[in-house]
Design a protein around this nucleic acid. Structure first.
Lengths: 339, 339
DNA sequence: ATCAGTATTGTAAGTGCTTACAAATAAATG
DNA sequence: CATTTATTTGTAAGCACTTACAATACTGAT
């Protein structure tokens, strides 16, 4: 049997209340008795039981983190930043990976709520379902604890959103392509998450504002795995052939897609950026791995995560905070676009 | 106040024991009463309190995951695979990021032990300290629950290691370079983790077996951030100049370092692979992003993680399992090396 | 030494759940 | 229909802590 507070109290010759007091460090304990208790704890290698603790305190300063896929470059970074911020403020994190399936999201939420987390942080826009009724699980959570959304926009009391204005980010990228001489931009994206929809809108708005047409033939939705670069290139090849589109630039909703586009160009003997300009999104590590390096929209993830964490800490401390904080993305110009 | 099992029992007109029974689904409850209880649960939106549950059951089927940096490409993948495996077997995971500092590792361990996890999984070789006494915290944990190490080798009862034979992997890479004509290999690594030491040993052994010399001038230890590709290139430039080394191949302990080496070559006008062959390690996504694509040692992470998870599940079920499982890495040949 | 006042400790009642055991109810048997 | 047996339910004692409140031990001043 594991050692408990009773073993310690017996060994130290004090009551369990006193042991609990030195454990919590709250109320005053005479230095001498404190030392006796600490010695006993040391000797037994005692670790307090968080279950019992949580029961008594009804909170353990822990935050539930939900994310679809912790191995996604972008999400992994976000987890890292947020976890770090929270820990530095005395909160522990529990991470649940949910995949992209509603049932798994719900069950992860249940799990976290059962662990009586002080808040839920939902990392990534994939948590918002197209059918609004399906978002009830978020509302249900928000009825009990503050819910923080990263890169998603959701109106409900006690839900706080921190996001990058992806529409504007993508509009900037589009404008930059147009400025540097592009006439026909092929837009490549891969899923209908909330932020991908925003990006698409931003792109189209920019096209219209520049007096260009929005053409279905120039929107390619890649259905496969994002990390399968060859498959992306292959998909593009088929798409281009099938629709017989011509274009002088490729704009993508994600850096990996852009790298896939590189592979396509290479295969077709197209030079980047002389023949085709390419812009990615997220400015992740891989944007600096390609040759030429990839121009990309930086969605300022670290800033977003820091802000989200700060907001959360304040909310937990009872401060009034804005429910929506929006940053705008930076276009990082590299060599995959013309000067 | 949150709703409890008492509220449900009252609403459904049964005792709390019955509510607990339908919650656990274990013993038989008459369908009719079961339905009444479920209705009450539904109506109140009740979520059982995991603290109380854990106290009663003294376990909640959760596994503690420790990793230094969840945003590291390689570690993030490992977390993903392991979490998935465990969840599919009915275990939840709690992730703690520890950084590379001993005190943080210890406190993460304490946290997990206080949460009474059923096992600790330590992801990555950075958990083994050079001074053996510093590994006592691992022994202490192993005295209470099984401890699983990924990519590290540690002898102690109740500690199970699943690893890739990095020495052999690096030896293969070295041999391949030699076979394809390399005479002077520059070895670039960045930290003294356990597996990095193994890799270095493997490289040196292979050199000696091929009748080549092991030269200090050809071991470069990059001290900076691994993701700062420019800094890697700069470091190499200075290193080469300072030691005035000549070489026709670069072998690195990690893909990002290899990409840094690409940048260096580009800057110096050296062609890959005509002038310089480059081999990375881990075969991560970025190995396929560079141009030419990077030859890399695949440490078979997914296999390792699956095996680790399987071993863990069996151990938890009381089966006898081998304490050490070793795989060997595959060299994935791409275009950064000569044919 | 006595007493008020304060610092320190102990007692005992929660906290929300599980489960052994007892009690009650239902089903089966002669 | 009375018994026996099986099924379903309830009672109450944990589980390992926290903390309000009561009790005790000190402190210095009289």
């Amino acid at each position: 049997m594991k050692t408990t507070i009773y073993d310690i109290s017996e060994k130290a010759g004090v009551s369990i209340a006193t042991v609990s007091r030195v454990l919590n460090g709250s109320s005053k304990v005479k230095p001498k008795t404190k030392q006796k208790v600490l010695d006993a704890i040391q000797e037994f290698g005692y670790t307090p039981n968080a279950f019992a603790r949580g029961l008594g305190l009804n909170s353990m300063n822990t935050i539930g983190l939900m994310c679809a896929d912790s191995s996604d470059l972008y999400l992994a970074k976000a987890i890292y930043y947020i976890e770090q911020n929270l820990r530095q403020n005395g909160y522990n994190s529990i991470l649940c990976c949910t995949g992209y399936d509603l049932e798994r999201k719900k069950s992860a939420m249940d799990l976290l709520m059962s662990k009586r987390v002080d808040s839920i942080v939902m990392i990534g826009s994939s948590f918002l379902e197209a059918s609004d009724a399906d978002n009830d699980y978020i509302r249900h959570a928000a009825d009990q604890v503050p819910v923080m959304l990263l890169n998603a926009d959701f109106d409900y009391p006690n839900v706080y959103c921190t996001l990058c204005d992806d529409a504007k980010g993508m509009a900037n990228a589009t404008n930059y392509l147009i400025q540097t001489g592009a006439k026909d931009i092929l837009y490549l994206y891969n899923s209908n998450t909330y932020s991908n929809m925003k990006k698409l809108t931003g792109h189209q708005t920019a096209l219209l504002q520049a007096g260009l047409k929005v053409r279905d033939t120039h929107h390619a939705k890649y259905p496969g795995q994002r990390e399968d670069l060859e498959a992306i290139a292959l998909f593009l090849e088929q798409f281009v052939e099938e629709k017989s589109v011509t274009f002088d630039a490729i704009l993508t909703s994600d850096d990996t897609l852009a790298i896939g586009a590189f592979k396509y160009c290479k295969r077709k003997g197209l030079r980047v950026p002389e023949d085709i300009s390419i812009i990615g999104y997220n400015n992740s590590l891989i944007a600096r791995c390609s040759e030429p390096e990839l121009t990309s929209v930086d969605s300022r993830l670290e800033t977003l995560c820091n802000q989200l964490s700060k907001t959360l800490i304040h909310v937990l401390e009872g401060d009034e905070m804005p429910q929506k904080t929006i940053f705008s993305g930076d276009l990082i110009k590299r060599q995959s676009t013309k000067a």
